[in-house]
Nucleic acid binder design. Structure first.
Lengths: 124, 124
DNA sequence: CTTATATATGAGCATTTACTCATATATTCA
DNA sequence: TGAATATATGAGTAAATGCTCATATATAAG
């Protein structure tokens, strides 16, 4: 992942762009790789049409796997795999009642991010 | 993409989960495939560590391709490809000065989504 | 015009993703 | 206990992704 190449060295020697050394002026707290990966992980979880629909529906009400599959017009297995993915990220949680497993949103922050973004996108 | 299979038919016939027909009670405006794809597209654009860093830096100041490559410790080509991707989504815009091309954020909504999400993630 | 520099882009490739299929597990009911 | 149902999961696969490498384009300087 990390790469130190000819390109990096060449880069240092040549361009100063504005001539004011804009990179050096970048003094605000730099973002770390871990932070960037963590932020990207959350956005990535919301970055798929199937998961967008899932979260959209679950934001309205708790739903079992079967009903989600019906709403999404998808196979049970595919839905279950996606729910597993979202559960690993603590975005959804399970509630088991007999044979049935009900899913709901597990993170208020994610929910707010989702709803706020929906609001933003309506004005675009 | 659309699939009408044995699974879908079987599903209709059996489970009612709570027995109150929770799917039928889902009467709020359903999300369309196009809407879900559009929403997912935006989140997906923010769902990569490289692009997260890019947007983080560009949210602070306008930067040329070269300086971005230096900050990201990445090759010029990779950075240019990602900028192209973000530009196609109107998330960043170009400003050309001689040989140099400066990039900055192009969408106030995306910027707000990004910053608000960063705020949320700090409290998790 | 020629050379150097800044950026853009097409092709190729390894990895990741999102599904399907088959099957495992868990629970209810006869 | 055995059959039926609801969900979970591992393996396999086609498509998407994010990079590298080579090269094209655009501009400036000599």
């Amino acid at each position: 992942m990390e790469k130190i190449g000819i390109e990096a060295i060449k880069r240092e020697d040549t361009c100063t762009c504005t001539g004011i050394g804009s990179v050096e002026l970048m003094q605000e707290p730099q973002i770390t790789e871990e932070q960037a990966v963590g932020i990207a992980e959350v956005f990535k979880a919301l970055g798929d049409p199937t998961r967008v629909k899932m979260i959209y529906y679950l934001q309205q009400r708790e739903l079992c796997v079967h009903d989600l599959a019906t709403l999404l017009e998808m196979g049970q297995s595919a839905v279950s795999h996606q729910l597993r993915y979202l559960r690993d990220l603590h975005i959804v949680k399970r509630r088991k009642v007999g044979k049935t497993v009900f899913y709901s949103l597990d993170d208020e922050h994610i929910e707010q991010i989702f709803v706020q973004t929906l609001g933003h996108l309506q004005h675009m």
